[in-house]
């Protein structure tokens, strides 16, 4: 067999240097395929689209009077929506907070509406509403009407979720 009769295949198959090249290329291509094939399975374990759609929740503010609070669900967690009275707003603005000082103005978008995640920052229990804030029955942490931790084992203030006012009476959380 003369050289001009040898096709691409012959060269790849018989030449020792090109043999190793062939093996390497095939190995790399096969390996890339295995990695690519594993991606759908790994991805399938991520939250599915219906779960992700619960990443935002809508909450209506209709019917909440000053001094009243409502609990809604967001990403499986409770969110407290508190409509504060003028007294409460005044007291909270005047106070710097407790163990985790933070200005009240930094914790609200409109002063009469407080929106906080209703999970105690200690170990995740849901605090109960009290006259001047919230009280966590699990280990006794106390929060004020701005959701700031006053005393107890909780290290930080109640978490602020991302939210937007889409109208006078509706917020979208998340």
């Amino acid at each position: 067999m003369t050289d001009d009769n040898k096709g691409l295949e012959d060269n790849l198959v018989d030449d020792p240097e090109r043999r190793d090249f062939l093996n390497t290329v095939t190995g790399v291509v096969a390996g890339a395929g295995v990695v690519a094939a594993s991606w759908p399975f790994i991805s399938s374990m991520n939250p599915s689209s219906d779960v992700l759609s619960k990443a935002t929740s809508e909450a209506s503010l209709v019917g909440i009077n000053p001094g009243e609070s409502k609990t809604v669900e967001w990403q499986g967690k409770p969110v407290f929506i508190l409509r504060r009275t003028d007294d409460q707003i005044r007291n909270m603005s005047a106070s710097p907070g407790g163990k985790d000082p933070q200005a009240d103005a930094d914790r609200v978008k409109k002063p009469d509406w407080l929106v906080v995640v209703g999970l105690c920052t200690h170990l995740g229990c849901v605090p109960s509403r009290s006259s001047d804030g919230w009280f966590c029955p699990c280990h006794g942490s106390k929060y004020d009407n701005s959701g700031r931790v006053l005393h107890g084992p909780a290290p930080s203030n109640l978490m602020l979720p991302p939210y937007e006012f889409v109208s006078e009476n509706k917020i979208v959380i998340g």
Binding site: E9, L12, V13, D14, R19, L22, T26, V29, A30, G33
Partner: peptide, 19 residues
Amino acid sequence: AYLLVLSGLMYLVMRRVWR
């Protein structure tokens, strides 16, 4: 398309081994 390419490569590898 990928599998056809891989089949082609695998075919060449097989041929070189069996030669």
